[in-house]
Amino acid sequence: MGFFNWVLSIIYKSMFLTGDSGLRRAHVLSKLVFTISLILVHVVYSEKSIAILPVLIVLGIVHAGLEWIIAVLSLTGLVGVYLASSAYLLSLTGLYYMAPLQILTIALRATTVAMSIILLFNIISPIELYNLLHVFGARHFSTYTLLLWRLMPLGLKNFTDSLAVGYLKKETTVKRIPPATASIIESGWFIEEYNYWRLRVSSKTHIPVTRTIIHTIILLLSSLTILLIVKII
């Protein structure tokens, strides 16, 4: 139960620790530039991508502070360690030999890719998505962007609460997972019931977004920095 709960808690912190703060307040164009830069680094300069890890860490601290970056490093480190140990085990079988440095590179690259994905997820502003759908005429669906960001952490919270109650009831994690999962599904049913009419009407206007110039500049500078790093190295 302990390890499973810990994994859930770092997923929870990595994805849903903050609301509309930090880099989420950067201008949408700077987010687009940053996204393209990251894709470029991972697709075109994939062998050098680990060099941008320090920039991503600093960016993470700027975005949501130490608590967040520790959770993200734990989660991405877990992915890195898993892939590296798989590679090491493969190497032990003799089917495909890998030098220790190669295994370390796998771990770091997996960590960098995972951190990039988490950072991109975190800078998405559901309100901006809402407004975008509104502008493009998909007004009915705009509500679902808000709902998605509401349901994911709520479901995760209910799931962990249910697991914790199961722990007190002396149930095994395996036995507790089905009812904990059912609690997420039931949350969905109740939200559908209690918002029955609200989910069937469309928004008539946008929701104002708070933007900060400083976060926009930081994101643009970071985009430039990561491109320079992979170019120079």
């Binding site: 609301g19 509309d20 559901p126 309100i127 809402y130 509500t143 808000l146 709902l147 960001w149 509401r150 952490p153 949350s187 109740f190 939200i191 019931e193 209690y194 918002n195 609200r198 989910l199 929701i207 104002p208």
Partner: peptide, 13 residues
């Protein structure tokens, strides 16, 4: 279960 917004701001707005 009656809340849709992920923040109070998003909900009210």
């Amino acid at each position: 279960y009656a809340i849709i917004g992920y923040t109070v701001y998003a909900e009210i707005c």
